[in-house]
């Protein structure tokens, strides 16, 4: 009879620990999706051509020297839109510290423009064709999904490739680590 008491205690403790970890897991950030290898040089990344809402050609070379947060998204992608209000706040807070956000989408120009206005997006939303997802895949998006966020250092090198929602707090911590501020 006495023999099972310690085991019962261990069982109860494990149950409590397991339950609390499980509950914590449910409320914590979504699990990180492993990204694939990066197959693009800084020169290739900066040479990729896009267009802004007015149709003016754009490349990431214009942000050379800054930490660039490249966000691959689409207007129809609900998880993409969940993370964007956080990006707007971070762009405001980190602009003066040399951080630049850019949204890249293979989407309808009018929809993107309307979306940018309605959500008060304070960073450029550029458009492209199939090359948008091609670049995304070359930057580690092995699943070909959205959202996908890539952090480039001031030399244009990939510092991080994140598949799935990038939560504001986690991204801010990463920016602080990259910029050393």
């Amino acid at each position: 009879m006495k023999g099972w008491l310690p085991l019962a205690g261990i069982g109860l403790l494990a149950a409590l620990a397991g339950t609390s970890l499980f509950l914590a897991g449910r409320h914590a950030a979504p699990p990180v999706i492993e990204s694939g290898p990066v197959d693009a040089t800084p020169a290739a990344i900066q040479a990729a051509a896009f267009a802004d809402a007015d149709g003016t050609p754009r490349t990431l070379a214009q942000f050379s020297g800054k930490v660039v947060v490249v966000n691959f998204w689409a207007t129809w992608c609900t998880p993409c839109r969940e993370e964007m209000p956080g990006f707007v706040k971070l762009q405001s807070r980190w602009q003066a510290r040399g951080v630049q956000f850019v949204g890249l989408a293979q989407d309808d120009a009018a929809k993107v423009a309307a979306f940018g206005r309605e959500l008060g997006i304070n960073y450029p939303l550029w458009l492209g064709g199939a090359e948008v997802m091609t670049l995304s895949r070359r930057l580690g998006n092995r699943l070909g999904v959205l959202p996908h966020t890539v952090l480039l250092d001031p030399q244009g090198r990939v510092v991080e490739s994140r598949i799935g929602i990038y939560q504001e707090e986690a991204l801010e911590a990463r920016l602080a680590a990259i910029t050393g501020r």
Partner: peptide
């Protein structure tokens, strides 16, 4: 009774490991 608690502990630890594993919920191809 001993087996019951041992099984319960095992299940809970497995659940906790699954919740904590970063790749436990990989989206499908």
């Amino acid at each position: 009774m001993t087996r019951f608690f041992a099984a319960l502990a095992g299940l809970c630890l497995a659940g906790a490991a699954s919740a904590a594993s970063p790749l436990a919920d990989e989206p499908l191809d």
